[in-house]
Design a protein around this nucleic acid. Sequence first.
DNA 1: CCGCTCATGTAACTGGTTACATGATTTA
DNA 2: TAAATCATGTAACCAGTTACATGAGCGG
Lengths: 176, 176
Amino acid sequence: MVKKLTELEGCALGLVWANGPCTPYFIRRIFQVSPSPFWSGSAGAIYPLFERLERHGLVHSLERTIGKRRSRHYSLSPLGKKALLAWLRPHSDWIYAVPPDPLRTRMDFLHALPPTEKAAFLADAKEKLQSQMGLVKEDCAQKRKDGQSYLVARGAEKILKARLEWINEVITSELK
Amino acid sequence: MVKKLTELEGCALGLVWANGPCTPYFIRRIFQVSPSPFWSGSAGAIYPLFERLERHGLVHSLERTIGKRRSRHYSLSPLGKKALLAWLRPHSDWIYAVPPDPLRTRMDFLHALPPTEKAAFLADAKEKLQSQMGLVKEDCAQKRKDGQSYLVARGAEKILKARLEWINEVITSELK
DNA sequence: CCGCTCATGTAACTGGTTACATGATTTA
DNA sequence: TAAATCATGTAACCAGTTACATGAGCGG
């Protein structure tokens, strides 16, 4: 059996599948412009990742030289396709479980803050969530315009909306 | 300035703040029974974590012996309280950004699966999300009954509901 | 007293972060 | 042509995982 992939590995593999042969840098950019900071797209993560994938035979690479610049284009191997499908398919239920949320985490300890700060925190959170909502809506509209699938962006939008509703609930229940 | 805390460190510190002097094992259990698998509560994470916090002066510990069993009870130091507040307060916007979601991530590559499997995946996801919903609702009701704050559990519930709605949206748009 | 779970660890490993380096290309 | 940014890396570090070890207490 193939070693199971991390989220980053699976996702990178999926992006190679979707975009055809491409450079680590190309993938890196996709992560970097994602509205979710979870995908840092740091060079130190991506380049070694592709070396790893190649060592395991999930991708293979060709060196291209354009002008004076050398770069390495990776493409999915048959084994890589298999690994992608295995990663995609639900191996266990953790995929469906409630995902981590740093804001929700902090809410447990909110009353460690002095009352005025607590209120300020909540008001600030509401505002920041709304501004994030703006970003995601933009991203969603952009994808729709570009003819890309916007279902994932829609998912992000719905999550943010739920968080916002929740914060409002917290605010009213705290002020009461 | 104090070194910034990881999510796990901040949360552990918060739990010590909320529960008074307690053992790493006690904290560990809280993570283990959490409905979110993000908090693994593995021993290899928690015990070194408390040693680290103590080295940095954020907690101090007392050794207790009950019967023949030795254990170490950690409590929050003034510096630790400061660090907790700093962690709690919004340092930057990433707290509010759209959190990672392994299900959403996979949705980008769903059409790598053969059509029948794709449909099965979605149907399965819906079912699993509903069963997760059951768990979280239970958790929420339990906390309510125990007089604990259930706001955080409510947040988890709302998120799950949003994911479920989203999956339904995906299903109808895929089958169309 | 045997086996199971509780409770407290530890050691090796690893994926991802941070920070730095370097040369190519573009822009002012 | 100088400065900025693009593109490709690399090395040190570190938090958390996995897997193991060990003894205490408890239920049969």
